[in-house]
Write a protein that binds this DNA or RNA. Structure first.
Lengths: 219, 219
DNA sequence: CTTGACAGTGAACAAGTTTTCATAGAACAT
DNA sequence: ATGTTCTATGAAAACTTGTTCACTGTCAAG
């Protein structure tokens, strides 16, 4: 897959986050406002790029209507989102719902924020009436084998404020990975549970999608 | 919560299904087309009713933008069933659903039968309309630790015909256990994955509730 | 019989939203 | 130097979508 520019990743991240928070997609103007563009066409161009690069699918003419590609397994309620990370460490997503409530696509409960310490529970009591939902991720790659999380396993992610040492699903610099969260004073980074993998220091944004609470393995 | 009319319910269901399938909400005209309304205002009225009754929240001025207010009453989705088995080996049940289907209570997909070879898939086409569902069992006891299934873990059970070597949830002589199924010629028995436990030879009846397909562990 | 709630038609309007067109600077490889 | 790509502006066009208005029919309760 073609590489995304920083701005394109940021826009994609914002769109995902918006869906997760509001259950509907942002309009082009929403994105424009978020990124302080003076013209809607700036956004338009980026969306075209995202579509050309194959990570986003637009529904022509329809407002606030997008899909994250590719959706293969698309029977009704199993919204499948595949995310191509770099190299071996890629994680493929499957949004799986428990308890049958409506999931608008992508599970991403936090705002992008460069500073983790200022991150808050994105579910203000006023804006939400109930707890966010858990979702499942299928793990690809072997970066967590020392934590006994292996390729093909499914992890159950719950949104929330992560603590030091939690295993989290994180959107770091536009890439989604499953890693252990390390807080050292003011520094925050992600650590793989596999000595062959280096630590991931966030350079741009770090979004915690949730904390891995359970792991599910095929017998 | 106020009661919904049939049409309101149908429209709400359609909207949910649309989101689940497309990841974005339908427009009023989408709904209109689906229900063959001649006027958009028919839909508009229903949406107003849904909002007034508190099950749907619309975002004023925004297209294809809604939120579902979680339904509290009569939510069939999280049916929790606790099962008190005898003794140490007791298993507590929790019915867990994936992908939003309805949970039937106790998973009882097999006929009692002393002879395993004659066991058949117990789902007569006439008596059941859909495929049996998986369910989850919480494991109590340590009889399967050699298979890396430990106390407190949750196993996902799927009904079906077990093969030699499958790990099964079985009702043996009136007690429910999780064991590995062994077929030796005409003999059939259950084997614990823990050397401290003896084999279980069925003396009376052996009912296979299902085959353990996955195991879920708290992190 | 009348009233009122509910459900719908048909048309039109206003706002939201995407899309197109014309233009231009910066970075970068040829 | 020169062309290409990426990014962006600014304005306008074209389309989508939510919303309103006036009117009709149904059905049960009072």
């Amino acid at each position: 897959m073609e590489e995304l520019t920083k701005k394109q990743r940021a826009i994609l991240d914002y769109m995902k986050a918006h869906v997760a928070e509001h259950t509907y997609w942002p309009s082009i103007r929403d994105i424009q406002a978020k990124f302080r563009f003076a013209s809607t066409n700036a956004v338009f161009g980026h969306l075209q790029a995202l579509e050309r690069k194959g990570v986003l699918q637009r529904i022509p003419g329809a407002a606030r209507a997008y899909k994250i590609v590719p959706e293969v397994l698309g029977d009704t309620s199993e919204t499948v989102i595949r995310y191509e990370g770099p190299g071996d460490d890629a994680i493929a997503f499957e949004s799986v719902k428990f308890a049958g409530s409506i999931a608008a696509g992508f599970p991403d409960y936090t705002e992008s924020s460069g500073v983790l310490d200022s991150m808050q529970v994105p579910l203000a009591p006023s804006s939400r009436r109930r707890a966010p939902e858990s979702f499942a991720l299928r793990v690809r790659g072997d970066s967590m084998i020392d934590a006994d999380i292996n390729d093909g396993d499914t992890v159950i992610i719950e949104p929330g404020v992560p603590k030091h040492g939690d295993i989290v699903a994180a959107l770091i610099d536009g890439e989604t990975t499953l890693k252990r969260l390390i807080k050292q004073g003011s520094k925050v980074y992600l650590k793989a549970e596999n000595q062959n993998y280096p630590d991931l220091i966030p350079t741009n944004s770090l979004t915690i999608q949730g904390i891995a609470k359970s792991v599910m393995k095929r017998i």
